[in-house]
Design a protein around this nucleic acid. Structure first.
Lengths: 216, 216
DNA sequence: TAGATTGTTAATCGATTAACAATC
DNA sequence: TAGATTGTTAATCGATTAACAATC
């Protein structure tokens, strides 16, 4: 399952490019173009499509709108996906005010916190006490959650989230969460990402100084 | 180079676990334990260490403090890494107020924006006009930048950032940036991450209903 | 038709894992 | 010593790429 993660991420990226192409008035696109746009080979593009039974037109390439529909179908974007946030800190605030989710059919329904000073039932995205999470989630059949609490509270919060019936967590904490078998966790760790970037920046800097590539 | 990305990310995760172990008073650790902690095999752990010449003690495992030092050395964490943010929106605000960077030796020096109403030279992390970025970056020898501007401004902003001498961008926009050969871009795309999570949640949901795994 | 692009198979490549001798 | 764990090599696995027949 992890195996396919990269493939699914590529599908998302193809889709993102296709939306832009459609806005520009493009009707057809070739595997070559799509590969260039997201930085993979044309073979990779055709292979990815082939895996999911997406076919184009020998000679004519792929039809942009049709491709978007197919990708949305595969990615389950045919309906609005409801999401909650646990932990109403700065990051949650940024996510609640981020405009990019709506166009992707992602709706943030509420945020939850343990701090009463954060509660706000009147806001466009209400901030509610965690005690209300389970009822909120089950009555609305919500399956996905963003976890943005302090590190020390992460696993305990996750346990409560899974107990409430959530099946997938987008985890912004630096804890590697333990999760039930039928649940998914995707980790987004800003320290790790920055650390990684710093490593490669330093590496490229050293290569430059040495004037040669490091041994493989 | 992309090839090694996953390996370097594992090193960051090992390090994160090791800090916690050290806080708990652990002195030694086995490849088995580390593998369990971040969800990889013991072989993978030893292989990762072997690649970078990290050795332990046959029988005695690895010494926690020594391992932390070695990993910090490899990841370039022996000195504080200075970082700027371009785009002073909600996400930048969250990053500026995030406490997790300091302990990782990452210091956010300033944020830059084109909107005068955002400027604030007195804040702990000042918000400055983009016109001052180039001078700021070169005088302080800053190499890494977080990009958090609206999508439409992304490539143009990136061009300016690279022109200012930055070598690595952590890109929060959904544009795939074009970058010079000697520069790195790491993408963190929240829509893509959520979309990915939703895909796997739906997939697991369907498996459950069918009571069987889908064909491979 | 001739030319160009897909769809798919086979070849390649690289990363992960297993196995085991070395050794503490 | 006997037992356990490393370090490393070889085997496996999976993902990417190249190639090319099918075909629009």
């Amino acid at each position: 399952m992890l195996a396919k993660r990269n493939c699914i991420i590529r599908l998302s990226r193809y889709k993102s490019v296709l939306y832009r192409l459609r806005d520009l008035g493009f009707v057809r696109v070739f595997s070559d173009n799509l590969g260039d746009a997201i930085g993979v080979t044309a073979s990779q593009v055709r292979k990815d499509f082939s895996v999911f039974g997406i076919t184009g037109n020998r000679k004519g390439g792929y039809e942009v709108s049709h491709l978007i529909d197919r990708l949305n179908g595969i990615l389950g974007k045919n309906r609005v996906e409801k999401v909650i946030i646990v932990g109403a800190g700065h990051l949650a605030y940024a996510l609640m005010h981020y405009g990019g989710f709506e166009k992707e059919g992602i709706k943030i329904e509420a945020a939850f916190d343990i701090d009463p000073s954060k509660y706000n039932r009147e806001a466009p995205v209400p901030v509610l006490p965690v005690e209300e999470m389970k009822e909120f989630v089950s009555s609305r059949n919500i399956k996905v959650c963003v976890l943005a609490v302090p590190e020390v509270a992460a696993q305990r919060a996750a346990d409560g989230i899974f107990a409430a019936g959530i099946k997938g967590i987008l985890n912004f904490t630096s804890m590697m969460l333990k999760a039930p078998d039928d649940c998914s966790v995707n980790n987004v760790n800003l320290e790790v990402e920055l650390e990684n970037l710093i490593y490669f920046v330093n590496l490229l800097g050293q290569e430059k100084k040495k004037g040669a590539l490091p041994s493989p």
